[in-house]
Design a protein around this nucleic acid. Structure first.
Lengths: 235, 235
DNA sequence: CGCTGCCTTGAGGATGTTCAATGTCTGTGG
DNA sequence: CCACAGACATTGAACATCCTCAAGGCAGCG
């Protein structure tokens, strides 16, 4: 049952129950990490991938002058570093945003899965490519959208992704990051992120307080953010 | 022989001559496009992928208010939209930067390849993930590097990628884009890009003139740009 | 010629950053 | 129970970076 969220996130193509249990069977073990623990360090050879079961994870890269760019936020059901299977190592690091529980898939088990079923292979491959599509949309946000829209766009994305796995509540969702984390994801400073959050709040678009995002009117936020969910590939 | 550049870009794992010819055999035909032709339009169902043989291609996405973010530049040997195979359609568009020649791989042929050889599958999967790694590095550039370093970083990347396929010359490489194209890739305005190019020129780091980039001292440019080629996965 | 596309430069302004100070909350140790 | 430290949020003021608007230059081309 531990891969339910993964399957919800990637509905296409549907897998048979044999395929589902083959996937489940590839899990070697589950592991817990404390908040802020570094799960994968860049450039270290890897022999396993991790699927996130509980909590939040982020991926990031540091520049020489000490700036951190957060590359992705991951929620339960995300195959956080499946791309380490074809790549053998990662060029960025992976860390726990909160206390997390992950399922470990040894590369050897992934290899067996792909040898046995081209359908499973396509589902796995596809999931790495949806991550890439999200990366690209973030490029658009950081490169071409103003700061306030950038914050709003991230909130829209997380709302929909969390909806899909039952991780949201009536009027928003829990977001365990700090404003400084958001800033590093959005290519802004913490100070300016704070001001943009105030603007969203004053305009009644969204509020971020006590690690919870409250969205009054999703349609209005979506329009403000220039948000089109197509890139999430929920088909 | 048309996939030589692809194999040079993705040296690992090495393929047997049977695997190479299987890859070659999956090519249905080659097609030419004029400069600026749109090769793939976003959200249109696709039944084939294109491998770039000659010329330059870029991928891009438009925002509602008319800004264009260029997501990637492709050079010969790049499997431009292989990710359309697992995804079935793209969330962005693909266009020819110059007159180009591409090899067409029907999705059905890719499916046969993956059914026959897990090694080929891994090579193809890997190539889509190297593209994603480049996307992530661009996120770092746009989000965390100053404008001048951003331009320099792009030049470093293209130099190394072109070196690998024999597309560079002694002191630089041909780059058919306009300054406005570079601007849209870097998240800058054309005016500011122009000023950053002047700065690089005045500092003796790099010169962009007549669609040619001349790099005096790669080491110095690399340091200026905070460039680390690890993300290109040339192992 | 007189377009058109692209590059270049200047001046002024918007957006986002930096630096610094203050407030709040929480956990910790005396 | 209180004092204190640390992490995070918030605000102001000055500043840097990058953008916008506008004009002019140059080359290629019908």
């Amino acid at each position: 049952m531990s891969i339910d969220a993964f399957l919800q996130t990637h509905r296409v193509p549907r897998l048979s129950s044999e395929e589902r249990s083959a996937l489940e069977g590839a899990i070697a073990r589950t592991v817990r990490y404390d908040a802020r623990a570094v799960i994968v360090r860049e450039n270290v050879p890897l022999r396993q991938c991790t699927l996130l079961l509980k909590g939040f994870i982020h991926r990031y890269k540091m520049t020489t002058d000490g700036k951190r760019q957060i590359l992705a936020f991951h929620i339960p059901g995300d195959f956080v570093d499946l791309h380490s299977y074809p790549l053998k190592h990662l060029e960025h690091s992976v860390a726990a945003s909160t206390a997390v529980e992950v399922a470990v898939f040894p590369h050897a088990a992934v290899r067996e899965l792909t040898a046995q079923s081209t359908r499973i292979t396509e589902v796995l491959w596809r999931s790495t490519l949806v991550d890439a599509a999200i990366n690209r949309e973030w490029m658009v946000s950081i490169g071409a959208r103003g700061a306030a829209a950038r914050v709003a766009h991230l909130f829209c994305e997380l709302q929909l992704r969390l909806d899909r796995i039952g991780g949201s509540d009536r009027d928003g969702f829990d977001l365990p990051m700090t404003q400084a984390d958001l800033a590093d994801a959005l290519g802004l400073t913490p100070v300016h992120t704070n001001r943009m959050l105030r603007e969203l709040r004053e305009q009644g678009l969204a509020e971020f307080r006590d690690h919870h995002v409250t969205i009054g009117d999703f349609g209005r936020l979506r329009e403000f953010a220039d948000f089109d969910p197509g890139y999430l590939f929920f088909d």
